[in-house]
């Protein structure tokens, strides 16, 4: 085993081949979203010819009184709002679990950890029945409120708080007369900043990609997130062929916020991702 050495070019070849695998579909989507009238098989598949992306974009934004932009705005409202608040709450809970000894601490942690193993899709149906009972199904809140809860964030928060907030520092703050809550917001939050970004990103992706909850909750298409909107267009392509072009260009546009979030917060991804597995 030790005698065999993998040559450099073989390693590079493997990486290059898989780069094609990962990027070609996205490149195709970009080219296809520039095809006139959704004629995806016309012209070259992977090179822009008669590129009409601008035209398709303006069709997309005008269709049905700009419903697509509304969907994008909805997605951003659901996602950014829920992830921002959810991250703070999960971070606070994880911090308490890591830095304080109190009765029921392990029980609470184990229940939350059990929550990580409960699939979110299993909750969608009972949540729908509950929200129907109080006449809140098919509203913004029906998707927003359940999206605030992120048990995995509590788990990550606990690990990070234990690793990055020294007891001595908290004790020093105490001697200076700072209250526990104030210490958290002025000192600990800063020490845990990379953790918060990581939890936020995980949460952001989870809500952005959540499909079952909005699918079950929402009937009013003006409340749809962009994923549900594109899905509903895609199911109507046979009856309304003009939607094909919109599905493709819409799918392409819908990727922008996530890609921007990823690229701008890259630094934190790298340092933070592994922490969930280090115990």
């Amino acid at each position: 085993m030790a005698a065999f050495k993998l040559p450099k070019y073989a390693a590079m070849l493997v990486m290059a081949v898989f780069t094609l695998y990962f990027l070609t579909p996205l490149w195709w989507l970009f080219i296809a979203s520039g095809k006139k009238d959704g004629q995806v098989t016309e012209g070259h598949a992977l090179l822009p010819d008669n590129f009409a992306l601008g035209e398709n974009l303006s069709d997309l934004f005008r269709y049905n009184d700009g419903i697509f932009l509304r969907w994008m705005a909805n997605s951003i409202a659901y996602t950014v709002g829920a992830a921002a608040i959810g991250t703070l709450l999960a971070g606070m809970c994880g911090y308490a679990l890591a830095k304080y000894v109190f009765r029921g601490r392990e029980l609470l942690f184990n229940i939350v950890l059990g929550g990580v193993l409960v699939p979110a899709t299993a909750l969608a149906l009972p949540l729908f029945l509950m929200f129907s009972k109080v006449s809140l199904a098919n509203t913004f809140w029906a998707v927003f409120l359940p999206s605030l809860v992120n048990p995995f964030g509590v788990y990550l928060g606990r690990i990070y708080a234990a690793a990055s907030v020294p007891d001595e520092l908290m004790e020093a703050a105490r001697i200076d007369g700072s209250s526990e809550v104030r210490t958290f917001f002025t000192l600990s939050v800063r020490l845990m900043a990379p953790a918060f970004v990581t939890i936020f990103l995980f949460h952001f992706v989870a809500v952005w990609n959540n499909f079952m909850l909005p699918l079950i909750m929402l009937g009013n298409e003006r409340l749809f997130p962009v994923t549900l909107g594109l899905y509903s267009w895609n199911t109507q392509v046979n009856q309304h062929p003009e939607l094909r072009a919109l599905v493709l260009v819409g799918a392409f546009v819908s990727l922008a916020p996530m890609v921007i979030a990823f690229l701008s917060l890259q630094r934190f991804w790298r340092s933070g991702l592994g922490a969930g597995s280090i115990k």
């Binding site: 819908s254 990727l255 890609v259």
Partner: peptide, 18 residues
Amino acid sequence: RLAFFLPYAVPGVVAAIM
């Protein structure tokens, strides 16, 4: 790292349509 990770930014619905 970035190229391989990029598909994770694509929601399941959009990836499935594509």
